[in-house]
């Protein structure tokens, strides 16, 4: 992340160490992940030990230390979705895009993530593609949801 962008984010929170989490969220929004050198700069600028930021950014699963794909697909694996076949959905996407859950395709198009309940159990099984919720999913419907992505390939 370039210095100007980072400074804008830091200034927005008046360089308060207590705003660390919000700062990390803003960086992740901009960059799609938390780049190592940016984290180092944040540690230096806020006077927070690098170890503490590392602990935070590995604790929350919404943060990623690895670059993520252009599209992010989250499959809910909560109990309700699980019993309605969420594992089959994950397998289907893994096969279709040749990417294991938790990783990104080599062309950086898609990141596949699993999450333990998004709180919309009535809609299960649930797949979230780029922030859009798709409920009552099955492999056939999934293909329809993913069609725009497939076309580009």
């Amino acid at each position: 992340m370039d210095a100007k962008k980072l400074n804008t984010i830091l200034d927005k929170y008046r360089r308060e160490p207590s705003a660390l989490l919000a700062i990390l969220q803003d960086i992740q929004d901009e960059e799609n992940y938390l780049p190592k050198d940016t984290i180092r700069q944040v540690a230096g600028e806020l006077g927070v030990p690098l170890a503490r930021i590392y602990a935070l950014s590995t604790f929350f699963s919404s943060f990623s230390l690895e670059p993520r794909g252009k599209h992010i697909c989250t499959v809910c694996m909560g109990t309700a979705c699980h019993v309605r076949g969420a594992p089959r959905l994950v397998e289907h996407i893994e096969r279709e895009f040749d990417v294991p859950a938790g990783q990104t395709t080599p062309d950086m198009q898609l990141t596949l993530e699993t999450v333990n309940c998004v709180g919309a159990c009535a809609l299960g099984p649930l797949v979230i593609l780029d922030g859009e919720y798709h409920g009552n999913m099955n492999p056939a419907k999934l293909d329809r949801v993913f069609r725009p992505l497939k076309k580009k390939e």
Binding site: K36, P49, L50, A51, I53, Y54, A55, T58, F59, L65
Partner: peptide, 15 residues
Amino acid sequence: SFAGRGTSKRMESPY
């Protein structure tokens, strides 16, 4: 610091 949580929790140096 600790890194990760739950079953993947570990004690390590940054990265």
